[in-house]
Nucleic acid binder design. Structure first.
Lengths: 259, 259
DNA sequence: GCTTTTTCTTGATCAAGATCAAAGTCCACC
DNA sequence: GGTGGACTTTGATCTTGATCAAGAAAAAGC
């Protein structure tokens, strides 16, 4: 039974957030925060912290799919520290003893990774693409949550959103056909990777391989491939490279989703 | 497409909690609270409230499966009030436009029903068996959550537990065989209906019909029935009445669950 | 008690998707 | 530029679970 393993390497810049960040900027969580070291703008959780707290805890890490180095150990990582996804896609998986695997969630920026008060996380956390995360030590976050109702509320909101997404996906897993599952997956990626896009046209790179898509949809790679070919033959999508998908008319794809 | 509807009737006793409940009893959430009107002992959420708050908000309702009366309207109910399950099983369902249905969660006592801060609930809430619930008006609960960190924490814990359960079930839906799904369902019911039971033997009434089990497992009634017959033929379970299941050896059932 | 309706079980057949197999494509690396 | 390896596509066949159908059992109504 081959279980794929992914790895992470720390990037060289562990520099904290620049001191030029004004406390008022950070307190207002509607203002995006720019990290001086990686130049990625991000908002969300960090916006709920104070500048001092941010300075104390921020350490950026680049997770790279398939790169050599220390293992990003499934269950262990989120127990030792929490993190916010800044860029890229993280997959949450569960595996049966005999190796059958199911992806139970995908996290996009600016989602929060890790679970409060849990001794052991029930899911494996792996980078699906190259990923930047903003790490927060376990003890630090748990202290912050107690003193900051806004942060606690943000975590509650994300947890409820994840629950909604999990339940939506249960319908897909339990009651949709293979064709509908694949269309629903493309729809999910299209809306998450380009949430602000307008109009009917979309173009994006799939963050997952065929095998990962199969694990997400409860199908085999062959079935995923066949259904993608079928959508292509029907001109619902164009596949210019195996990972690059173009959707000329989103509503046409939507009609294939079965709901 | 036939969509089954369930109904509720209010029971006659809307009496609030007895004034003989001592404030100290209620503050200590480890002490079960006995409702004078329905004589059902229950703990959990109510234990986190003060006596005054309890008096102000408690109204018991008996939900009855299939009884005539006002409709327990899927999405509407949990929006107008929140509730704790005191007795019975409540199912959360989602339905595709063409009528395909998936049960996305089961709530047992003392689970909490309803969702904070949500304008509209994404799931339909229906009684699976006769159910007693303790209702809390929407505004009341939202006010209490703001002032009581303990209550907020309890809601967060339940939400995370529901998320774990949803993800566990995603593995079952996506990666298990029909036989494993049915065994897993029986395991779920056995552990939830008799959580404190000891030893290997279990006996219980199924709270769901074959059709509901099928909707929970992403299968058809026929397949559910066949797999139950097979478990019976293999002496893993005994079916004394169609709803009554006896499990002589839980570990033997566990081995059929595929994980 | 008897009928009617609903739920459950069992059998026969069918089809969606899995499995098995092979060839094609895309990269990374030398 | 060529080679090796992983990923993807496509085809042939098989299995699992769906569908169709009928009868049995249980529950509801009268």
């Amino acid at each position: 039974m081959i279980k794929k393993k992914l790895f992470f390497r720390d990037c060289s810049d562990y520099a904290p957030y620049g001191a030029d960040l004004m406390r008022k900027d950070i307190h207002n969580s509607n203002i995006p925060v720019r990290c001086r070291s990686c130049e990625v703008r991000h908002q969300g959780m960090c916006g709920a912290l104070t500048a001092d707290e941010l300075l104390a805890l921020s350490a950026h890490t680049h997770l790279a799919n398939h790169s050599a180095g220390e293992e990003l150990a499934g269950e262990r990582m989120p127990v030792e520290s929490y993190a916010t996804v800044i860029r890229g896609v993280v997959k949450l998986t569960k595996t049966l003893e005999d190796g059958r695997q199911q992806i139970v969630g995908l996290q996009f920026a600016p989602d929060f990774l890790g679970r409060l008060n849990a001794e052991e996380n029930a899911v494996s956390v792996e980078a699906a693409s190259d990923v930047n995360i903003c790490r927060v030590p376990k003890a630090t976050l748990e202290r912050l949550v107690k003193s900051s109702p806004a942060l606690a509320e943000r975590l509650m909101d994300q947890t409820m959103r994840e629950l909604d997404e999990a339940r939506d996906w249960m319908v897909t897993l339990g009651r949709k056909t293979a064709a509908e599952k694949v269309a629903s997956f493309l729809m999910l990626i299209a809306t998450h990777l380009e949430p602000e896009a307008d109009g009917e046209r979309r173009a994006f790179d799939l963050p997952l391989s065929r095998a990962e898509i199969a694990d997400f949809l409860g199908l085999t790679i062959e079935t995923v491939s066949r259904q993608l070919s079928k959508l292509k033959a029907d001109s619902v999508i164009a596949i210019t490279a195996s990972r690059h998908i173009e959707v000329p008319k989103l509503s046409k794809l939507q009609m294939r989703c079965g709901a």
